[in-house]
Design a protein around this nucleic acid. Structure first.
Lengths: 104, 104
DNA sequence: TTCATATGTCAGAAATAACTGACACATGAA
DNA sequence: TTCATGTGTCAGTTATTTCTGACATATGAA
């Protein structure tokens, strides 16, 4: 029972090849911190930061700040176990609760 | 078993409140032609045309040109019965087959 | 102190997506 | 012929997203 806005956020978050790969990397390689993940995926850190933010806002990943052995602050991200069914029925139900602005 | 590019197209098509409502309208109200649908949803016909194109390219709707009783050519659209599961696993699998350009 | 690592943020450019307002064409009815 | 209806398309504007290149801050090691 996913709400319209919630589903919209998830779909928006998944509508990007980088973000799909980020999720895949975290799922396959396990939790990781942003600088390291940026190196592995091959995109800039600010850009990865942006994408991770969007994924986190959609509730698809979570982050946790930790201190490494040598004192560096590492922000670890990991995938959340989500499950969304996309069918005409679920889409129609979600669309009915969309809080978009119909005002001109 | 949805391919990466196929899933990307679906997600891209669903990442828009208008298109979610269009799918909902076609699912609930049944098949409809574009001018009529544009009036019901309350958006311009060229805009609806654009969105329907994107939905059709993603394989979420189909269209069929028909002649009405009074001779007008009506382009009827209807929803295709799709079913997509969104989980970390399916996303990871799809991301692995993405044909994006990793060059530069 | 300097270096290498980590964090975050932000302004501006570049690339897409969304949208509007025409235009062109066709048919049946008035 | 004119009107109302349907179809599609396209150029140009606006809005949104994506991306880069800085900047600022912090810590441990050399």
């Amino acid at each position: 029972m996913t709400g319209g806005d919630e589903l919209a956020a998830i779909l928006s978050a998944l509508d990007n090849p980088h973000r799909l790969r980020i999720l895949a990397a975290l799922k396959v390689g396990g939790r990781n911190y942003v600088s390291q993940l940026a190196r592995e995926i091959g995109i800039s850190r600010p850009l990865l930061h942006l994408h991770l933010n969007k994924l986190e806002e959609a509730g698809l990943v979570t982050s946790q700040l930790e201190l490494s052995a040598d004192g560096k602050a590492l922000n670890y991200f990991e995938v959340v176990a989500f499950h969304v069914e996309l069918t005409p029925e679920t889409v129609a139900a979600a669309a009915a609760t969309l809080s978009d602005k119909p005002e001109k």
